[in-house]
Simulated assay, not measured.
Amino acid sequence: MHLLSQWPLEARRRITGIFTDIDDTLTHDGLIAPEALQALGDLKATGLTVIPITGRPIGWCEPFMAGTNGPAWPVDAMVAENGAVAFVPGAANAVTSQINLQPTSYMREALSKRYQQSIEVRTANRLRMDAIAAQVCAEVPGVELSRDSAGRETDLAFDYAEFAHHSPETVQRVLALLQSHGMQTTVSSIHIHGCFGDFNKWTGACWIIRELLGRDLSAELDQWVFVGDSGNDQAMFEHFTHSAGVANIARFVPQLSHLPTYVTPSARGAGFAEVAQAILAAKRHD
């Protein structure tokens, strides 16, 4: 990893869009850092496409998109559950039927929900996931589903570092159980994830750019940057030409096969703001 200050000016000038993780990249203890929220707005005001992409559930994302618990985040879309589902601005008739989550009236008016899987596939997967969740909780002492699981539609998440504190050995035991059922797994800074489907943040990013813009993300990676901090960001670090880890990525570095190109001086939301400032400073030089 190189210092963020080594990101070439010409490369920063070409940036037209930014993907970012949420937990521990924009937020700390579940709250967005004020400087990160300001940075999102500054990037949008400059005309950049801004898309958070997270392992969090789609239900957890709704207040940030809709502005029901504070100001709506100034973003173009929000991709959840490691790429399986997204909120985008749109008409009511674009909201797709779902499992265990009823949309609010505000969301029906302002947002639409997009999925990569059909309702039939999601329904069948839900039954399988419920049984697997019960097995994991029964066989691995102390492990529980994440507290945000009520809003999840396409994956399972188990808490190992948000409210719980589990050892690396426990994390590996949960992963092995999920994988024994054919689930794809990832580990974020706080949760262990399992899903049925080829979902990760990279495939989710490519999907949402096709959905929103009708373009091929892989063909224009010199115009995009990704900012993240943990294991479920590895696919983005692997594929993006320009990527940055906020400083708190340091605790995960020994576990990562793919590292970001750059690292910020500061952690979490302050680090994200540093990436935004590097881009905006380059734009001012145009």
Rank of each mutant, 00 (worst) to 15 (best):
T96D: 08
H2N: 14
S257G: 11
F240Y: 06
T96Q: 15
H191V: 09
I132Y: 13
L101S: 04
H239A: 10
R152W: 11
V143C: 01
E162A: 12
S167L: 06
T203N: 06
T264P: 06
N82K: 01
R215F: 10
L280W: 11
E211A: 11
A205S: 10
R126G: 05
I58W: 08
L177R: 12
V88R: 03
R215N: 04
E238H: 07
A66P: 04
R210Y: 05
T68H: 14
Q38V: 05
A94C: 06
P168V: 09
N69L: 15
K44G: 04
H242N: 11
Q277S: 11
A267I: 08
L48N: 00
A72W: 04
N82Y: 05
A92F: 06
G151M: 06
L40K: 01
H193C: 07
T185L: 01
P74I: 13
E162N: 13
A131T: 11
A176E: 12
Q116G: 10
T20W: 13
L127I: 14
G70I: 12
A92W: 15
Q277F: 05
N200D: 10
L177Y: 03
H285I: 08
Y115Q: 07
F158G: 03
T261C: 02
R147S: 01
F64H: 15
T27Q: 05
P260R: 00
F272S: 10
F163T: 14
T25F: 01
R126H: 13
V85N: 00
E162V: 09
L3E: 11
F252V: 06
E35H: 00
I208P: 10
H285W: 08
T203S: 13
N125W: 13
P89V: 11
A138R: 03
V174F: 05
A124Q: 15
E139Q: 05
D148H: 08
Q98C: 09
T96G: 13
A244C: 01
